[in-house]
Design a protein around this nucleic acid. Structure first.
Length: 277
DNA sequence: CGTCCCACCTGATTGC
DNA sequence: TGCAATCAGGTGGGAC
């Protein structure tokens, strides 16, 4: 569930539920690859800290915390840190009452001062948890706010396929397989076209299409916040009308032609041979 | 450096 | 019904 709109929805939903709370205790699973920072550092940084904000940078959820009285990390002035949560393919960040049984594949639990728990659950373990000392900005540009001029500039001279460029987080951060395919369809551009050879007009269409599809998806995701945080998953999000994603072999919703499936950048890619050039 | 490819995991679905 | 093969919304490290 982890592209920009889903991550933003999760981050906003979790922020609304837990900002201002203090973390009393931290448990971690010990599965080494889940933790990019040592588990001891995560526990020491978070235990006793207050959660000031939860937001999104690219596909990463960023939890701002501030150590104060009662935290293990003490200093002359309150120390700010960030807990970074990358959901990978199957990661979920849940806010639960402690009596709700721990789901299988739970890798971290933060116990809050109101009794609730923040739980990180990730069956496939592609997700990653870490601590950042300073403001984490991540690689790549933010697609929801980038200007058309900057957007065109980041693809200049790039010889890789435009689909691969959209997926590359060090160019733009937050775009994944669904929104790459959906924005290319809406812009009428084939996924294998070389990024650096797109015309300025095509890049203008892609910029507009990507920002529209992300904004649309964020709106839909936002409407299902209470469902997925309390229960299990993001039910309702898939109501988004995908034009091509997961529709290979089906008729194009715009022209009726059979949608084609190819592999680009190692990922399943679907496009309309008539609408996209 | 830019680009490509595959390993990293579990679980749901498809196909024989 | 059972079991193996295939596929999945992501990334980072090594090869070229």
């Amino acid at each position: 569930m982890p592209e920009l709109p889903e991550v933003e929805t999760v981050a906003n939903g979790v922020h609304d539920r837990i900002h201002g709370r203090r973390i009393l205790g931290v448990w971690t699973s010990g599965k080494p690859q889940t933790f990019k920072s040592p588990e001891t550092e995560i526990a020491e940084t978070l235990t006793g800290a207050r959660i000031t904000r939860v937001h999104r940078v690219g596909k990463t959820i960023v939890m701002d915390v501030q150590q104060g009285p009662g935290s293990r990390v003490q200093g002359p002035k309150p120390k700010k840190s960030q807990f970074l949560i990358h959901l990978g393919m199957t990661g979920r960040l849940l806010v639960s009452q402690p009596e709700v049984p721990l789901p299988k594949h739970t890798h971290a639990v933060l116990s809050l001062d109101d009794g609730r728990e923040v739980r990180f659950v990730d069956p496939r373990r592609f997700g990653r948890l870490s601590i950042a000392g300073e403001d984490y900005l991540g690689p790549g540009a933010e697609p929801t706010t980038i200007s058309a001029e900057e957007f065109a500039a980041v693809f200049k001279g790039r010889r890789l396929a435009i689909k691969a460029a959209l997926l590359n987080q060090s160019i733009l951060h937050g775009v994944g397989n669904i929104y790459a395919d959906e924005s290319l369809f809406r812009a009428g551009i084939r996924p294998r076209r070389q990024a650096g050879r797109l015309t300025r007009a095509e890049l203008g269409r892609l910029h507009a299409a990507l920002q529209q599809v992300l904004a649309h998806a964020i709106r839909l995701g936002g409407s299902s916040v209470s469902d997925y945080v309390d229960a299990d998953g993001i039910r309702g999000f898939f109501q988004l009308e995908h034009k091509v994603y997961s529709r290979a072999g089906l008729p194009c919703r715009d022209c009726g032609a059979t949608l084609r499936k190819v592999i680009v950048a190692g990922r399943t890619t679907v496009y309309c041979p008539v609408c996209q050039h």
